[in-house]
Amino acid sequence: MRRFALIALPYAWLLALFLVPFLIVVKISLSDVALSIPPYSPQFSWDEGIGAFLAELDFENFVFLTQDSLYWKAYLSSLFIALVSTVLTLMIGYPVAYGMARASEEWRPTLMMLIILPFWTSFLIRVYAWMGILSQEGFLNQFLLWTGIISTPLTILNTTTAVYIGIVYTYLPFMVLPIYAALDRLDGSLIEAAEDLGCSRLSAFWLVTIPMSRNGIIAGCFLVFIPALGEFVIPSLLGGSGTLMIGKVLWEEFFSNRDWPVASAVAVVLLLILIIPIVLFQRNQQRASEAD
């Protein structure tokens, strides 16, 4: 009996507040927009029966998503932005993780804490911090003008460049931690062996270190790519009107246009796109845990 309660409580909670809401989204994505409260039809009622209700559902909203270029452009540009920022985060994160793994034992806990600390700090505040730096009269422009590198201030805030900076900055710890974990386990004698056998330092790095930290690299990339794809806060604070990202489109479709069926359809398609990287990520994690 107690075992039953232990299972039933979290199970019922997740069914009611995770699965059912998601089914509602799917259902509304198949409904039509209507001038009523709530603003969609058909509404389900037991009198008319399930058959009549199902007959009124259609894929109109999904067809609409393919016809209006705003949506597929937003999906493509989200994919592109997420991909580029993942590569950038890897290029900055790998040397940091590598440096941490090579630091002396007594330094490592401190370095580890310095990487984790931003993770506990508000995401919103960390994005906000860049608004003062990247604006026209911000610190970056002040600094560059002072050094004489540029003569007129650069426009960075409200462009896609600012979005890249924001994503790399906020997700850097997610990249560093799994790579560090992989490098930390790496047996140093393997690299020595490679060098003894005639590898240069650089080729030992390419032939031994990189392949041995592969699982960490893959995990880090997915941990950046997956959340970056549906990102809302960064494009809305740092990006401009030219930065199309699907999370922002969904938000505006819901709060500004009040078109719930289309917003729901946008959500369903976003999730379908995300299934591929999520499955790949899980397969990588499984392989990594089997390898241990």
């Binding site: 507040l17 809401p21 509602i24 989204v25 549906g230 976003l270 990520f281």
Partner: peptide
């Protein structure tokens, strides 16, 4: 792994 916008939207609709 669910994007926050989707979690938020689905709960609001519920």
């Amino acid at each position: 792994v669910m994007p926050e916008v989707i979690t938020g939207l689905s709960l609001l609709l519920l």
